[in-house]
Amino acid sequence: MPQLDFGNPLLLAQVVWLGIIFLVLYLLLSRWALPQVGAVLAHRAETIAADLDVARRAKEEADAAVAELTRATREAHAGAQAEIAAAVAAAKAKTDAESADLNAKLDAQIAAAEERIAVARTSALGALEQVAVETAREVVGRLIGSSLDPALVPQAVAGVLAARAK
């Protein structure tokens, strides 16, 4: 087995060179190459942390803005509601006043009309009696051929009218 051939000077030389190469590799890695990779990784971690920080701050700002918006919306809503209620109340009051006014006017007109109707009715009824008396006198005069007692006919007509009116 060549690995156990300790008489070969190359075996020891190999180990000496191993020591030199390993030491140089260790020094180059620890002083030069690994810090570079470490710096890249640290830079990335820093960048990510900074970005996360910015994002967190933006989120906080957005949350505050949303809260402000919600509050403003609620206030505007309440204000609008109050204004609507006031407008409705005002319109209702105005309508009530107007309708009361109109009612009063109409009532007055109705009363006046009823009065006029009553007057007309009374005069019409008076005229009717007279027409009936004359007609009756004429008819009876023609039927019996002589004039009647002038007081008798109005009496009879009044009696019939009174009976009808019942």
């Binding site: 000077p9 030389a13 190999q14 060179w17 190469i21 140089v24 590799l25 890695l29 190459a33 570079q36």
Partner: peptide
């Protein structure tokens, strides 16, 4: 200097390790 083929491979391996880290870290 009794530099064997074993040591040559050690140098090549070391070079590859250093190259991996150097060219890997360079784009940053």
């Amino acid at each position: 200097v009794n530099f064997t083929q074993s040591n040559l491979l050690m140098v090549i391996a070391s070079g590859l390790i250093l190259a991996l880290l150097y060219y890997g870290a360079r784009p940053r």
